[in-house]
Design a protein around this nucleic acid. Structure first.
Lengths: 343, 343
DNA sequence: GTGAAAGCGCTAACAA
DNA sequence: TTGTTAGCGCTTTCAC
């Protein structure tokens, strides 16, 4: 297995893996020079560079990023916290974040906090312990204690998917209140008058609900009929929510769902029980997931540009790491209502 | 912000964060003793333990895991590689892996290799560079070069979601060939005779296809009609695949889809174009995603116990890290066909 | 049960 | 352009 040409150093400690010292020795240079050749190739002569890269490929050297991070206080690691990876809502954000970071030599580590926030503190501890160059928070968080820990850590933090009045550090999101308002106006303009909402039990969805209700009232409509379902939302809870709603208030004519998955459940139930969409009931989702455009009927939904959120968050962190001062710390990414057949 | 009681050490280098030295000084003990108190509380006196934990909470100390990992050659980090996190197939596995590892003090770092394997090498390099205590591979990988790198790194590797004849190290999966066979027999037993398959363009799905075809032939049936779609599979590609299939071979009576998402697309298209499911066309999916049971009609599908895969993979790695020798290195987790209304 | 010394593998700072 | 020195913050080894 191991080549006879290479004599691994033997010592009481250490992993036994090839180190920069081995590479340097083989190339006939000092360790720091090998380090420079690899990290700042422009600062060394072409000849030396070649000797070092040769030595690297001959030994199969893989830099120890733990050691590098410790010495340079730059781990090239960014942590992202999501409620759960099963929730498809943040996938687009995480995906674009991963790519934007990878392109700049950073790596993403994903943490799941759970919707209830139980693991939040333990998670923060392990995250901060890895000394990431940035932390991206999506859609949750905010025990006072968590805020304090983050602040104390001195690590750049980007909050996303919301606009809070008091951001910890940087922020890229949109207004959930505006979403609720806009959807109410949208449905009203379509001639709908008896609104209902199915919403997951999380804080942001509730803010959309509140604004949706208030706007309906302001428009002189009947009270919004509400069905709360546990987070994370599922197709199943959408189905049963519609069944309950139709049983209690058979005359509703428009339904705003707090996620596209709920909307899919609602549409499934509607189909199974012969409720015509959109004729009898207009349906609006939230998230504009992959499948929304291809449902039958195609789903009207609120689109959030998750990619933009991810790449902007990456930009924030990379700028900070480069020592550039970020003057615009809060970005409102907005949203749009995609008008399709279901409404 | 910062308490006046604590004087952070000033030096030319370092992050300025609270270190174990600071904690030790405040507690009036040697650094190594503070380290013991935190990592092996049973080895120190109760009195000393209290002094140290007090100092920790007063300073807000968060251990630097980079330094710890470097010194101990145990990073308490496990890397998982998936094709993409948008593919819902591996979510259950990743989720249970995360939880099983977190419960044992390990953290998961997620890497996306892409379905084409372009980023595979670069990804491996960064992963190995972090010196994880284990690497879990799901559903992809296997350039000869990648195998070599993994082998050379000496890091425990668990391959999942497949049974390969020549595993790199450890393996927990199931036979895709058996799946293809079983589904063919299942549909045959249901009285279906003219099979079709819609399948994503990835190697494992193709192996299921091959077995499905071969078994159909062995059963004396007509050739399986096949529609290949690009990976990752989507609802949309399911819709258009069914449209194409029905156009060319309107008499097919059973359709095996390589993912539940494809099946959902197929069912959507069937509904949109008035094809009765299961009367005229039986549909079988793969994955048993969350939503499968709640579709209308409920989706018959192949269930893989993703949680079991994840927790077994975690067990493998933790055992290895603890120095326990793993004698059973290959585990066949099996699969089952969940018989619902769509067939 | 507690501590001193040494070193994990790398890079910042300063020289030459 | 290259090298020397001294650490980054922690844990191992060995001694008391």
């Amino acid at each position: 297995m191991t080549s006879d040409a290479i004599q691994p150093r033997r010592s009481r400690r250490g992993s036994g893996a090839v180190t920069l010292h081995d590479v340097a020795k083989l190339a006939g240079v000092a360790p720091i020079t090998a380090s420079r050749a690899l990290n700042h190739p422009t600062q060394v002569s072409a000849e030396l560079l070649k000797k070092v890269t040769d030595a690297v490929s001959r030994t199969g050297y893989v830099p120890n990023l733990l050691a590098g991070g410790l010495a340079s206080t730059r781990s090239r690691l960014v942590a992202a916290v999501v409620p759960t990876i099963s929730g498809p809502v943040f996938l687009e954000t995480v995906q674009s974040l991963t790519e934007a970071l990878a392109a700049r030599g950073y790596q993403l580590m994903l943490g799941q906090a759970g919707y209830d926030g139980t693991r939040e503190d333990a998670l923060l501890e392990t995250i901060i312990g890895r000394r990431p160059d940035g932390i991206v928070l999506t859609g949750i968080m905010h025990s006072a204690d968590g805020r304090r820990k983050l602040l104390a850590s001195g690590i750049p933090v980007v909050e996303t998917w919301d606009l809070t009045p008091t951001p910890i550090d940087m922020l890229v999101g949109f207004s959930h209140v505006e979403v609720g308002r806009a959807v109410a106006h949208f449905l009203h303009a379509k001639g709908r008058r008896r609104f209902a909402m199915v919403t997951g039990d999380d804080e942001r969805a509730r803010r959309r609900l509140d604004a949706f209700q208030a706007t309906a009232l302001a428009l002189g409509l009947a009270p919004v009929r509400v069905q709360i379902v546990p987070a994370p939302t599922t197709l199943k809870s959408g189905r049963s929510a519609l069944a309950l709603l139709m049983h209690q208030w058979p005359d509703i004519d428009a339904l705003f769902c707090s996620s596209d998955l709920l909307a899919l459940g609602v549409m499934t139930e509607a189909q199974a029980s012969g409720i015509a969409v959109p004729e009898r009931l207009a349906i609006v989702g939230f998230g504009d997931l992959d499948f929304a455009a291809d449902l039958h009927p195609a789903l009207t939904t609120v689109r959030i540009n998750g990619s933009a959120i991810g790449s902007q968050a990456a930009q924030f962190i990379v700028d900070r790491a480069a020592g550039r001062s970020v003057e615009q710390r809060v970005i409102d990414i907005g949203f749009s209502i995609i008008d399709r057949k279901s409404s």
